[in-house]
Design a protein around this nucleic acid. Structure first.
Lengths: 134, 134
DNA sequence: TCTACCGTAACGTAGCGTCAGGGTGC
DNA sequence: CGCACCCTGACGCTACGTTACGGTAG
């Protein structure tokens, strides 16, 4: 904790589980821009910023591009107030929701396939090791 | 089928589910090199080659580099005959097996996190849409 | 000969990792 | 002042995608 709710990039990286260069990259691309900078130029992240980083981290394995993720988060921001929320924004938001569902299904399939490989490997090792024992 | 057990890159791409450029890339890097070429230079894949491509495809989501995958497949090849199989090769093979296990666990965690996001998104959309109806 | 398919070469892209050289902060 | 931490370029890397231009298969 640097000064009550303002974290430096190192602490953030530690707590979120992203590398410092990744976090800097996200800043450069405008995915997650720190709410403040110290007088000396250090990036200072608020708890909300950190939450956004966690959000990105969760979405990345679903093969979403950083641009899409940025767009999605902006949509969420725009619709925080239901009054300001345009129908169009809500529409696009649910398209993202559907995409997330699909990617999850795909991820499950990949996991299943990967476990197959694991089994395949284990059995291959076993038969080859057993043969060696004789 | 081009001529009994020899497939052109297009058919292979179709059946395996990898893009043509990906398959060409794998050839260039020596990951999966087609067993033959037509007299005119067309890549000709055998069923075994196609199997190797499927193997690569299954391992990719586990974040293995192409070089590692190549190494792994070579290890499998080298140990096909238990007599030629060195203890060292078998050792490295089981290290890969362990790595696969770990990556599977990680993948499951990522899937769980991603589903969280899905839920989060759906509920956000719902509350914001319902508010609009009034 | 036509047409779909394939070849290489070369450059473009996303998402970081990795210095190099130099301030910042406690 | 020291030492850990941070800054901005700028270049490197992986794993492809994308033309451009031309040959091949049947």
């Amino acid at each position: 904790v640097t000064s009550e709710g303002r974290y430096q990039i190192g602490e953030v990286a530690e707590s979120v589980g992203l590398s410092i260069s990744t976090i800097r990259h996200y800043d450069e691309l405008g995915v997650v821009v720190p709410s403040a900078r110290s007088s000396g130029g250090f990036r200072l992240y608020t708890d909300a910023d950190v939450e956004r980083l966690r959000f990105v981290k969760r979405l990345r394995p679903l093969q979403f591009g950083l641009e899409e993720i940025t767009d999605l988060m902006r949509l969420l921001d725009e619709t925080v107030d239901p009054v300001t929320a345009s129908v169009e924004a809500l529409d696009r938001l649910s398209m993202y929701a559907a995409a997330v569902e699909q990617r999850c299904v795909l991820l499950r399939e990949q996991l299943a396939a990967a476990r197959e490989v694991g089994k395949q490997l284990r059995s291959a090792i076993e038969t080859r090791s057993v043969a060696r024992l004789r």
